[in-house]
Structures are given as C-alpha cells and as structure tokens.
C-alpha cells in the first residue's frame, strides 16, 4: 500500500480517498483507532500535504498520533469551536490524562465529566460561559440549559472524532490532546497560544467575538 501511494493520481484513485477527504474537510480528526483511514493517511501523507496546500489548508499530523485539516485561508470554510465545545473538550482532555482512566480503557461516565467541569470552572462561571446572552434565570433553568449545552457539545465533539458516545458513558480518544496544545511545551503559555494562532490552529475569541455562534 505504501508503494502504491507514491503519486497523487494513485492517491486520489484509492477507494478510501473520497471518504477520508470528506471527513477531513468536515473537521474530523482521524486517529489510529480508525485503522483503515489512518493507514491511508500515513501512507499518502506527503502527497496529500501538497494536495491540500493548494486549497490553502494544512494537513497536520500530531505527535499524539492523529491527523486533521486546518484551513489557513478562506478557500475551505472553517469554524471555531463554541464555548461549550471548548469547555467540555478541555475537561475531557484532562480526564484523558489521568492514569485512573486507563483502568477502564479510556471510558468515563457522563456524570464524571459534568462534576469535573463544574468543580474546576465553578457553577456560576459555567452558567455564565454557556449562557452569555441569557438574562438571570432560575437556578434549575440555568442548570438545565448547561446540561443541554454539554450534550450538544458532546455530540459535536463526537462528530469531530474527539470522543465516542456510549450509552451512559464516553470513550476518550487521543485527538483530545489537541485541547492541551497551548500548554504542551514548557515555555510561556501566551507565546505558545500566539504561535498556534499564527498557524491558524487556534482562534482568539477576543479577536473574533462575533464568530462565537458561527
């Protein structure tokens, strides 16, 4: 397979290409668990990097072992994750890093996510972050709105390849480590963030507040 992927024509002619291409363009992260697509991308990485550069996109292979596409201009539409997706994603990344999660093979309960998120961010900050335009509402209404936002975020993150939704639990996947990219290095967090913004992998909400609901 590796030898067969040397030319662009052969890569584009592979039956897996349309599926992989559509997945990448829709924002999906492809890791080792997605064996066939991951193997295809690994074997065609060089060719596809050049191919996507013509669309002004970067095909990124992260050290944690997953591929994703980052549009650096407007030829391929892009969006930034919502506040809910960011909060849930970072919490799941935190759970992924914990050795205790290993015992269950990366499966955590939904309630564990909610408790951890509220524990770190705080109930009030969570309500404010997930309902920025809503006026003061009864506590039960606000909590219900937070739960709804978390569910919505989980569905979206599942579609992007960060997590698998099981019945009452979640299976964490390696692409979650993308949420830890700004704090990966031992250097200054702000400069790491700036670097990621320059690379187009992260958007500062202070610069694009109007994109929030995009």
């Amino acid at each position: 397979m590796t030898d067969a992927m040397r030319t662009l024509a052969e890569t584009l002619g592979d039956p897996l290409f349309p599926d992989v291409d559509l997945a990448l363009r829709s924002g999906r992260h492809i890791d080792r668990e997605d064996l066939a697509r991951f193997a295809f991308l690994q074997s065609a990485q060089e060719v596809l990097e050049t191919f996507y550069r013509r669309y002004e996109c970067d095909l990124v292979f992260a050290t944690a072992g997953y591929f994703y596409l980052v549009p650096v201009a407007d030829r391929v539409r892009r969006r930034q994750l919502t506040a809910g997706e960011m909060l849930v994603g970072q919490t799941l990344a935190l759970l992924y890093l914990e050795p205790s999660t290993l015992r269950s093979g990366g499966v955590v309960g939904r309630s564990e996510l909610t408790e951890r998120l509220a524990g770190i961010v705080g109930d009030d900050a969570l309500v404010a972050a997930l309902n920025p335009r809503r006026k003061r509402a009864a506590r039960s209404v606000a909590e219900e709105a937070v739960r709804t936002e978390i569910d919505r975020a989980l569905r979206s993150l599942a579609g992007l390849g960060f997590v698998d939704l099981l019945e009452d639990s979640l299976r964490l996947r390696p692409p979650l480590l993308r949420f830890a990219d700004p704090v990966r290095g031992l250097g200054n967090e702000s400069s790491a963030l700036e670097q990621l913004i320059r690379e187009g992998k992260i958007v500062s909400e202070a610069e694009h507040p109007e994109d929030e609901d995009a």
Binding site: G27, V70, P71, V76, R78, P182, G200
Partner: peptide, 10 residues
C-alpha cells in the same frame, strides 16, 4: 477564551 479552529466545508 480561545477556540480551536477546524475545517467546516459543507
């Protein structure tokens, strides 16, 4: 706040 950027081609 900051957010990850992802491809979102229709």
């Amino acid at each position: 706040p900051f957010a990850l950027a992802i491809a979102d081609a229709p």
